[in-house]
């Protein structure tokens, strides 16, 4: 039997990065962390592209049951891998084949294909774009608000306070880093009371508290109350986002 888990997480302080560290903390798994510095384009270096040909974080390696290394990318598939392999007591997942298992998948894909990409575009047009395009800002902020509305309506009906069944699952964890950074995309969480209560509920979990500070301190809560810090953070981010776009366009 191979010596496992032997998990190595490659990550950055972003919503997609912390969903993996939170998942690992919730499962109580040991893991090593390598911080990927996106401002230095580390994610485009050949050694990293060997792990993720898409050049994005998060990525993860582990010793597989056959004793060889497995390389994984895409946050949703990494979360599925972790619970499949290590959540034998179903702490944050449900047994395969149950209704709740597939409903968890609904919301997981909803985040990965919907909330994440759309809120990411809202961030782009609100914070990083080289020119202010009103239409672009409105399109993506409104779509993010629509998606938040779907979540809010769903949570209003939830008896457990979580997205699926009677407990917090990988679907909740996937959403949290994005929802708690709503203000950054120009969305006011106060509009969505059930979602706001869920955000607080998630934050109160020890696994979320521990996992959110990987690899650097998570500052979204403090940032949301400090306009000067928001401005500084936006300017810094804008510089490397535009640098990255220029580099990609040249290929």
């Amino acid at each position: 039997m191979a010596n496992r888990p032997d998990i190595h997480l490659y990550t950055t302080q972003t919503p997609n990065g912390i969903k993996i560290s939170i998942t690992l903390e919730e499962l109580g798994l040991p893991y090593k962390v390598t911080k990927i510095d996106i401002s230095k384009n580390t994610q485009k270096e050949p050694w990293f592209l060997e792990i993720n040909p898409n050049g994005r974080i998060p990525a993860l390696t582990d010793t597989f049951s056959d004793g060889k290394t497995i390389r994984l990318f895409e946050s949703g598939s990494i979360q599925q891998y972790l619970v499949d392999q290590y959540d034998k007591d179903y702490k944050i997942s449900y047994p395969k084949g149950t209704r709740e298992y597939y409903e968890t998948n609904n919301w997981l894909f909803f985040l990965n294909a919907g909330v994440g990409p759309m809120q990411g575009q809202a961030n782009h047009f609100s914070r990083y774009a080289p020119e202010r395009i009103e239409y672009g800002v409105n399109r993506y902020v409104n779509e993010t608000r629509r998606l938040y509305g779907v979540l809010n309506t769903h949570l209003e009906k939830s008896t457990s306070g979580y997205l699926v069944g009677d407990k917090c699952t990988i679907a909740d964890i996937a959403h949290w880093g994005w929802v708690t950074a709503a203000f950054w995309a120009g969305v006011d969480i106060e509009e969505f009371p059930a979602l706001k209560a869920w955000d607080d509920r998630m934050l109160a979990r020890p696994g979320v508290e521990k996992g959110r500070h990987v690899p650097d301190p998570h500052r979204m809560k403090e940032l949301s109350k400090d306009p000067a810090a928001i401005k500084e953070h936006a300017e810094k981010s804008r510089a490397w986002v535009q640098q990255g776009m220029a580099a990609d366009a040249k290929k």
Partner: peptide, 25 residues
């Protein structure tokens, strides 16, 4: 079987989160 089972998921998630939304925009 492993590891292909998970690599299939990896590319499926890349499609739904990395290809579809951006091609749509």
């Amino acid at each position: 079987h492993f590891p292909e089972k998970y690599h299939v998921k990896q590319w499926l998630f890349f499609q739904v989160s990395g290809q579809g939304p951006y091609f749509g925009q």
